[in-house]
């Protein structure tokens, strides 16, 4: 990706919440490129949410504190542009769908954001139809958001964010309050947007096995700092560093690591991060038939 211009650039970012003694973010430097699917890992309180609030300019405009360094989104310095302007570039989905839903119907929920952007009423309907279609909620426009399942509510939150035509979708543990079907739905929609529309996705998430399958980059935060930044294979191979930070790695990665370190086994290749990678490495060793 060298030579290409990042869609998001964070330089020497340090942020301390008003009244706090220690910074929530310490000297963060990151470049994120268009079309990346970035997973943010870290314990609760490690700075993931604060970092996301800096990306959508809620920090420094709506939350008090001391910010040093810069965050640049599509060439716009977030310190100089209001959150409302950034909302056209950065869409946000929070962990609790009920937290961001307020309207009487699914369609109104989407219209609310468009209204704030000053979109004319007659232009709203096609947009509403389009974004509901993208997230698989076509035909539910008249429903109350509160009658939807958890997975549907989160997909509605995504649709509402998409209506603003963002280029970056920031998601803060979007599946922590939905059941397994809902998780599948939300991850599938995020993956589809990333794959088919080159949407840049930045997702904070605890489920490392899922992130290993979807993300092309993993950023690990610990006590306000970025401690690892690389491909899933590069990052999860650093099992000792992650464990020290209180985090786990995908089960198949741990399996390969422990075979080498605890059982004197010769894995002799990079550690797998997905089931498929592990299967490809192991299945031929059994001999006999394999397909």
């Amino acid at each position: 990706m060298s030579g290409e211009k990042p869609i998001l650039e964070i330089k020497d970012l340090t942020f301390t919440y008003a009244g706090a003694e220690t910074p929530a973010l310490k000297n963060i430097n990151l470049q994120i490129f268009e079309g990346e699917y970035v997973a943010l890992l870290g314990l609760n309180g490690s700075g993931k949410t604060t970092l996301q609030l800096c990306i959508n300019a809620v920090i420094p405009h709506m939350i008090m504190g001391d910010m040093e360094g810069s965050v640049t989104v599509q060439d716009l310095d977030t310190a100089e542009y209001p959150t409302r302007e950034l909302a056209k570039i950065v869409g946000v989905v929070f962990d609790n769908p009920e937290f961001q839903l307020s309207q009487m119907s699914v369609a109104e929920e989407i219209a609310l954001g468009l209204e704030n952007l000053g979109v004319a009423v007659e232009e709203m309907n096609p947009i509403i139809h389009e974004v509901l279609d993208i997230v698989g909620l076509s035909g539910l426009g008249d429903r109350s958001p509160f009658e939807l399942s958890g997975g549907q509510q989160q997909r509605l939150s995504i649709a509402a964010a998409l209506a603003m035509r963002p280029q970056i979708l920031v998601m803060d543990e979007p599946t922590s309050n939905v059941d397994p079907i809902g998780k599948e739905e939300v991850f599938a929609v995020a993956a589809k947007l990333n794959r088919e529309r080159k949407m840049t996705v930045i997702m904070a998430e605890h489920e490392v096995e899922v992130m290993a399958a979807y993300a092309n980059r993993i950023i690990v935060m610990d006590h306000g700092e970025v401690i690892l930044n690389g491909t899933p294979t590069e990052v999860f191979s650093q099992l000792d560093v992650l464990e020290k930070a209180g985090l786990r790695v995908p089960q198949v990665t741990e399996m390969a690591y422990r075979l080498e370190h605890d059982r004197s086994a010769h894995w002799n290749s990079v550690y797998p991060v997905t089931t498929e990678e592990a299967f490809q490495r192991i299945a031929p060793l059994f001999g006999g038939k394999h397909d």
Binding site: M255, L259, R263, S264, A265, H266, W267, I282, F286
Partner: peptide, 11 residues
């Protein structure tokens, strides 16, 4: 680990 170790010459 018990299942896979022997495949990789491990214990």
């Amino acid at each position: 680990l018990d299942v896979f170790a022997p495949l990789f010459g491990g214990k």
